[in-house]
């Protein structure tokens, strides 16, 4: 039982990362019917932006320009990185995807992959191959709860992730921008007839998804501080799998499937040798998709692109 609970806690943490990233894939797909294959690299960019913001704030505190407690630096780092990374996402949409709005979907997919390569390479050119380490903003504290050890970091990661998902849900369900996003996911072509600028909503969606990826990257950095230009590739693809498992375009699906993926991975590693983890985890997902090709929460309805 303790063993199970221990894994449960770890699964929640990994599920949080996957869910936050998967949301970006799913929202963009819902609104624009394309997968932003640069999304994993946006996660990487968010991490580096977070690194510089955090290092800057820590430095300013050290020389006494401002005196901020570390928890506040962490909060500020998350917020500032989310905002800056949102702009990176909007830039990617503007430069990479908007000119291809009417092009075949394959063109957009290839563009996404190439943007990812560009972001990785730019990072190498600007920062070199040296690995950076995300600053330690939260001293690890370990709590023993009935034999299960829980760190304050894990609690924080899960809590912040759930909070962000709750806020995203509020935004999508209660604001007129969120309403426009839902409308666009249902019938793309009619949205301009409502007086709504498509490009604004598309940019907003990219911005939101990128901000969530940035938040995920900061949270990730508190637990796994080593950074490199390719850090977004594997986690990005895994989150993409979660988005597919949840159902293309489904926000709830992406969040739920992110956690499911976390659980499947952690528990298959706890039962079988950990080198088999991905093999077993993705076989299970393939199996689920055979029976639910639209994903767990996906709908057969697809948005209409023409009037």
């Amino acid at each position: 039982m303790t063993y199970f609970l221990q894994n449960f806690v770890n699964a929640l943490q990994w599920g949080s990362f996957y869910a936050l990233i998967a949301l970006g894939y799913s929202m963009v797909y819902g609104v624009l019917l394309l997968f932003n294959f640069a999304h994993g690299d946006i996660f990487m960019v968010g991490s580096y932006i977070g690194f510089f913001v955090a290092t800057g704030l820590v430095g300013l505190s050290a020389v006494g320009v401002i005196t901020l407690p570390y928890w506040l630096i962490l909060v500020l780092t998350i917020l500032i990185s989310m905002i800056l990374t949102a702009f990176v996402g909007m830039l990617v949409e503007r430069v990479g995807y908007r000119p291809l709005r009417d092009a075949p979907r394959a063109s957009a997919a290839i563009t996404g992959l190439m943007i990812g390569v560009i972001l990785e390479t730019l990072n190498l050119i600007m920062l070199g191959a040296e690995r950076y380490k995300f600053p330690e903003l939260l001293q690890t504290e370990i709590y023993e709860l009935g034999g299960v050890s829980v760190t304050n970091k894990k609690i924080m990661i899960v809590f912040v992730s759930l909070l962000l998902m709750y806020l995203l849900n509020l935004f999508v369900m209660k604001t007129k921008w969120g309403m426009a996003m839902r409308a666009m996911a249902y019938d793309f072509a009619v949205v301009p007839l409502m007086g709504i600028p498509l490009n604004t909503i598309a940019a907003l969606t990219f911005g939101l998804g990128s901000a969530l990826a940035a938040a995920a990257s900061i949270l990730f950095g508190t637990a796994y501080p080593v950074m490199d230009p390719y850090m977004g590739v594997t986690i990005g693809w895994k989150a993409f799998v979660a988005a597919i498992l949840g159902g293309r375009g489904s926000i709830v699906g992406a969040a739920v499937a992110g956690f499911i993926l976390g659980f499947i991975e952690i528990f298959s590693a706890s039962v079988f040798p950990s080198t088999y983890r991905d093999l077993i985890a993705y076989s299970i997902i393939l199996f689920i998709l055979v029976f639910r090709p639209h994903g767990l929460f996906g709908q057969e309805h697809t948005s209409k692109l023409r009037l």
């Binding site: 007129k176 839902r182 009619v190 007086g195 309805h301």
Partner: peptide, 23 residues
Amino acid sequence: PEGRRLFGNLTVKENLQLATFAR
């Protein structure tokens, strides 16, 4: 538009509200 093209995933109220988005 032809065939109505309502946002079937939105309520009646939301469909009406959405139309005032940029007014």
